[in-house]
Design a protein around this nucleic acid. Sequence first.
DNA 1: ATGAAAGCGCTAACAC
DNA 2: GTGTTAGCGCTTTCAT
Lengths: 350, 350
Amino acid sequence: MVRMIDVANHAGVSLKTVSRVLNNEPHVQDALRSKVHASVKELGYIPSASARSLRSSRTYTFHLISRTVEGNFVNTIQSGAVRASQKHGYNLIVSLMGFETLNEPEALERWSKSFLIQKRPDGVILVPPYSDSPLFNEIINKAGIPISRIGPNEIDDMNNVNITIDDGVAAKEATNHLISLGHRRIGFIRGYEDHGATHKRFKGYSDALQEAGIDLDPSLVKPGMFSFESGMNAGLELLSMNNRPTAIFAANDDMAAGVIVAAYRNNIKVPEAVSVMGFDDSELAERIWPTLSTIRQPLLRYGEQAVEYLVNRAGNNSKKKSDRPSWTDILDYEFILRESTGPLNEYSIT
Amino acid sequence: MVRMIDVANHAGVSLKTVSRVLNNEPHVQDALRSKVHASVKELGYIPSASARSLRSSRTYTFHLISRTVEGNFVNTIQSGAVRASQKHGYNLIVSLMGFETLNEPEALERWSKSFLIQKRPDGVILVPPYSDSPLFNEIINKAGIPISRIGPNEIDDMNNVNITIDDGVAAKEATNHLISLGHRRIGFIRGYEDHGATHKRFKGYSDALQEAGIDLDPSLVKPGMFSFESGMNAGLELLSMNNRPTAIFAANDDMAAGVIVAAYRNNIKVPEAVSVMGFDDSELAERIWPTLSTIRQPLLRYGEQAVEYLVNRAGNNSKKKSDRPSWTDILDYEFILRESTGPLNEYSIT
DNA sequence: ATGAAAGCGCTAACAC
DNA sequence: GTGTTAGCGCTTTCAT
């Protein structure tokens, strides 16, 4: 094992000079700089991350905490986060925390200590529904670890960074699209009730109906769990109604895909007999038939932005809260028109 | 910050005793054990991972290295690996390495040094196509880091662990399924040529044809890249042939999903007019219509097993190669019959 | 602009 | 069975 002192001896300089060069610090003559670099290369020196962490109390790692890493949503965010982390010389650790842990303060604290605080990451990325747990946020904040929260329900005053789109506005636009196609009986499938997104998207849906002078029919609103299966079940219910909806807006793409399969199973054509609208623009959206009209969330950018902010805060190195004000970044969404939505027509009528 | 010495003072024991208790080492009286535990709790002591790593030269982290983390394959493996890692008190770092890096020895070495060896993980998990790069394997091995390789093309003698299914046997069974349905013109869509799986699955396909006395028609074999798009393109080609195949076996599910969309676009019914067979049993397989007949790889278990082996080797703590012999684990695959494959019939004939 | 010395928090080696 | 000592490899502090 080659250590820094070996490089120093080989280059004929002091330990500290090597350290300065490797950390790109100023106050070193160019001549010494290149000498050090040459020695590093010749000896094949690789710095020890642990030693550096111990002394500098920076680990150059971030943690992404989620309930599951399967499914397109977290997956794509993660992809953006890993790329951005590596770009800045950081590593990304993916941690999975049980959903139920959120509601058990003691379990939450135990989990945080053993899986998070012990590792002292330089920052944490929280995705729904964890972005919305005040207690969880507080535990992490107390440990002095900055947080980037993705898609939080409410913006708090805890000096964190929030990254999101305006779910309400987006859902309203999606609903207006269906209304403009002539639909008036429009079903809605909700997601997890503890995800803020569920409520915001539903509000966008109901606002659009109201503005169009359409009464909201509660029988057209079904619960869901953001999963394919829950979407399929809700779809089966909605499509077997006597006076079934002519369009269905699901709160995410996985559920919308479930509705489309439900339609196939009932021999109902999409979009001729029923239009289906999703939300997220997940990978699935272009892989199913008909391809899914949806709202694109900039998932990759969520991950990238989250990391950029954390790198920045770590760079400032200021543990003083005042130096890291709360910050909210509302990114643009995009309406994606594909083949699962179409005009109201004679097929639609039951 | 509470340190170990603070706990020792508070409990009235020595530093080393605290260390022994926290590491579950023997030779400590129960009375002292509980005293220490009490002090830990009272002071809210959390050990420092960096200090422990520096001294013990174990980092309690594994690296999973892949080209992308998007798509179901790596994603599911990762999920299993994260869970298993946490269970044993390890963290999983996800690293992305550019595909092209593999073919540039210098870039590969640079990447390894800055993103891998510097962090000194206690183990590395390699997925295709990285599991098959001898140079990459060698660089990691030289650094004394154990490797679990998932789905490697060839079993080497580098004292690593290999986890896979028998792709050839599985692909043969899949092809036999199509043959038993009466199909004789069976198309095949290949994957990346540098993935061993491509060749093994093709061999299973051609072996099955041969045993059934069917001549392999090279015009029915198309290249692919394991992506939805490449599958759709290959599907469009195959389905627009004058004498088109009555069944298509794609080397993975993403491509099979592409074939199904290609069929829709050409108004060809699946499975009535063409049967489609996938491979992997990815998330997609149950989310599209018709649901996909496929071969299930135990992806979650790949990840779990990979970690179990690494934990074991790290536990043995023996850097001597002789103590960690090469080991190959061939897991069971599963044939999954769904709705995309059906008997040859009058619709199939062009 | 450079170097010497101190020490981050822990575990390994060795005493007792 | 328990404690003492040394030191992992680096960055920080302070002296020059």
